[in-house]
Nucleic acid binder design. Sequence first.
DNA 1: CTCGATCGTTCGACTTGACGAACACTCTAC
DNA 2: GTAGAGTGTTCGTCAAGTCGAACGATCGAG
Lengths: 187, 187
Amino acid sequence: MTEPSGPPIAAIAAALQQERRRIGLSLAEVARRAGIAKSTLSGLEAGTGNPSLETLWALSSALEVPFSLLVDPPRPVVQVIRAGDGPALSSESADYVATLLSASPAATRRDIYAISAQPGEPRRSDPHLPGTVEHVVLSAGRALVGPTSDPVEVTAGDYVAYPGDVPHVFEAIEPGTAAVLVSEHRA
Amino acid sequence: MTEPSGPPIAAIAAALQQERRRIGLSLAEVARRAGIAKSTLSGLEAGTGNPSLETLWALSSALEVPFSLLVDPPRPVVQVIRAGDGPALSSESADYVATLLSASPAATRRDIYAISAQPGEPRRSDPHLPGTVEHVVLSAGRALVGPTSDPVEVTAGDYVAYPGDVPHVFEAIEPGTAAVLVSEHRA
DNA sequence: CTCGATCGTTCGACTTGACGAACACTCTAC
DNA sequence: GTAGAGTGTTCGTCAAGTCGAACGATCGAG
């Protein structure tokens, strides 16, 4: 069972209101900053509706939180995720598996990923929010990691950090390549 | 040309097509699985439009990728620490080596460690600052990790998180045990 | 108490995204 | 050659999301 639930409108509604109150802004002020009608925001916080991508993006900018915060539910403080566990939230393909281990809480803003990759098509990523920094520790194998313009070849045990707000890539060179990735956003 | 934080419609368009072709499905088939019109999907992959939350969610399910992947693309390099490099700062003992990879900036408060351990005396840690949380991803071997009162046995690939403000332990069970540890303080 | 400002909600009008059929195209089989 | 099944695209229609204004509620100053 992957995702039994529907669209996380309820979760987003809660996150919107929580983040807005955290920075102490009124509904009208956030709507103004986001460039949307406050009636729209009012409805969203009430859990009614089906916001468009632009609306959500504008709100994440106005609230000054990563977009993922609005869609990734918070996680418990203590938990165990087995290597063989069904994916709580993972991105899979034939030669690349990225499992989200720990989503960033509101205050700290960082995600931890376990990556398992096979040689094949490189995993390219578009720029993230400005201020994002990513850290990779290769557990096994060999990979080409870093900005698309200047990637670095790393082997088991190596560590590499790079800005997340430029296009970047993760390409396994050897079979059975694994890594731990920490993506953090500095406010 | 690079917008500071424009809606990632273009990125989503690329991600949609990339993921769809990765699993080798036709546009019509994905649309059918997602329960949306193929014309809608066609437009989205072309980069035109502004999809609603429900539409995106349905597509992430149909493509069997996490929702966050479509809206929050993964990661990119600035600093490289090779496995054989002499660590600038490390804590060593006969059967335990912890290398500091990335010290926590003032704002974010988190440290990333690479741990190499051998079976022997458990590595016990006294409580850190209140609000500290530690995350461990085991790269290789087998270890007993977590609160001293209730440790968890983990193997390669496993993830475990536990409060850092209580006594905790890291004990290698197999030779050649390695791990990545992220220690963070929540304000 | 009254006025004013700000809060969040509700309402009708407009804009726009989603739908589904028809379309042009490619490839294969007969 | 033609017929068929597959691909992805375009277009008119309808439903739904968004907008802006008006609404009642709340709080503080005079």
